[in-house]
Amino acid sequence: MRRVEHVMGFPVSVRIDEEDFPEAPVDDLFAWLREVDARFSPFRPDSEVSRLDRGEVSAPSPELREVLDLCEEYRVASGGAFDVRLPGRGLDPCAVVKGWSVQRGAELLSAAGARRFCLNAGGDVVAAGGPWRVGVRHPEHADRLCAVLDLTDRAVATSARYERGDHIIDARTGRPATGLLSMTVVAPTLTEADSTATAAFALGTDGVRWAAAREHCEVFAVDTERRVLRSAGFPVVGVEAA
């Protein structure tokens, strides 16, 4: 089964390598992602996140509390470089919500009996079963890859400038993060991979060592000098020069 929908501002595709896998769990997956967008988007004035930020919600729902707790965990772990509450800006937990919600969606598929599938959310991937070959886009050339990975029961996420410019802020300075062109993290879940990649990018070149030191995380980064920096256990099967 293969299906693609545009949700949360980016394409989400799923491929399930199971004979006669039912449509209902895939419907549930996309329904969940649409619910997340409606509830947690800071760009929707009626979302729970927006209403909480305006003081119209006295206590967040259990799901939003889980997200906010994760945000705080990464804020503390990164020494304040990663923060979803920047001065002069509203609450924006998107950097955690994406990986967290897609990982939850993958768990819906697993609970329905899917054993070998690939769930791709705007380039961040949950690879169940395997092995799966996953390409990492070159940070400066959209038609090239800088690495090809071999993944089994892992997730991979990349934070970079190439899609949205200097959108990742180093909260310690209030300025766009510098030092890296891209940061890719492989972890057991997309919650970990996506949040770690964003926090590491905010830390700049110090983020490479920081992310690699986190339990079960492997990293591949390209810095602004076009040097490739990667941890020893990064599951790469092919690398191009940056």
Score class of each variant (00 low, 15 high):
Glu63Lys: 11
Asp206Lys: 07
Ala95Val: 12
Val97Ala: 10
Arg54Asn: 11
Val36Gln: 03
Tyr74Asp: 09
Ala232Pro: 08
Leu119Pro: 00
Glu192Asn: 08
Val148Thr: 12
Pro188Ser: 12
Glu240Thr: 09
Arg89Phe: 12
Met1Gly: 13
Glu5Thr: 02
Ser110Phe: 06
Val222Asp: 02
Trp132Asp: 00
Val136Trp: 02
Ala221Arg: 03
Leu91Lys: 13
Pro25Val: 05
Arg65Cys: 05
Val14Asn: 02
Phe43Gln: 08
Glu19Ser: 15
Pro131Gln: 08
Ala127Val: 09
Val96Gly: 12
His141Ala: 14
Ala241Gly: 13
Met8Asp: 03
Pro22Ser: 12
Arg144Met: 07
Phe220Thr: 02
Thr196Asp: 09
Val4Thr: 15
Glu23Thr: 11
Tyr74Asn: 02
Phe201Cys: 10
Val84Gly: 11
Met183Lys: 10
Val12Ala: 04
Gly113Met: 00
Thr189Phe: 11
Arg104Met: 02
Ala59Trp: 09
Arg133Ile: 01
Thr152Glu: 11
Val12Arg: 03
Arg51Cys: 03
Val125Leu: 05
Val185Gly: 09
Ala114Leu: 11
Gly90Pro: 04
Phe30Cys: 06
Arg175Phe: 06
Leu149Thr: 09
Arg65Tyr: 01
Met183Trp: 07
Thr191Met: 00
Phe43Arg: 14
Arg15Tyr: 13
Arg175Ser: 10
Gly99Ala: 06
Ala112Trp: 06
Met8Cys: 07
Ala77Trp: 06
Gly90Phe: 07
Arg230Lys: 14
Val12Leu: 00
Gly88Val: 05
Glu5Ser: 10
His141Ile: 11
Gly135Ser: 01
Glu56Trp: 10
Pro176Arg: 12
Ser47Trp: 10
Gly165Leu: 08
Leu86Asp: 01
Pro131Asp: 07
Gly135Val: 01
Thr152Tyr: 03
Asp150Phe: 12
Val57Ile: 15
Asp223Ile: 05
Gly174Phe: 05
Asp69Val: 11
Pro62Thr: 05
Thr191Ala: 10
Thr191Pro: 05
Arg144Pro: 03
Arg3Phe: 03
Leu64Val: 09
Leu86Val: 04
Leu64Asp: 04
Trp210Cys: 06
Ala31Thr: 15
Arg104Leu: 00
Glu163Leu: 13
Arg227Lys: 00
Phe117Tyr: 14
Asp153Ser: 09
Val84Leu: 03
Asp53Val: 08
Glu19Ile: 13
Cys217Pro: 03
Leu91Ala: 12
Gly129Met: 10
Val12Pro: 08
Arg164His: 13
Cys118Arg: 15
Ala127Leu: 02
Asp83Gly: 02
Pro60Phe: 09
Ser159Asp: 03
Ala212Ser: 15
Val96Lys: 13
Arg230Ala: 14
Ala127Trp: 08
Ala106His: 05
Trp32Glu: 13
Ala242His: 12
Asp170Asn: 15
Arg154Thr: 00
Leu181Arg: 14
Ser13Thr: 12
Ala193Tyr: 04
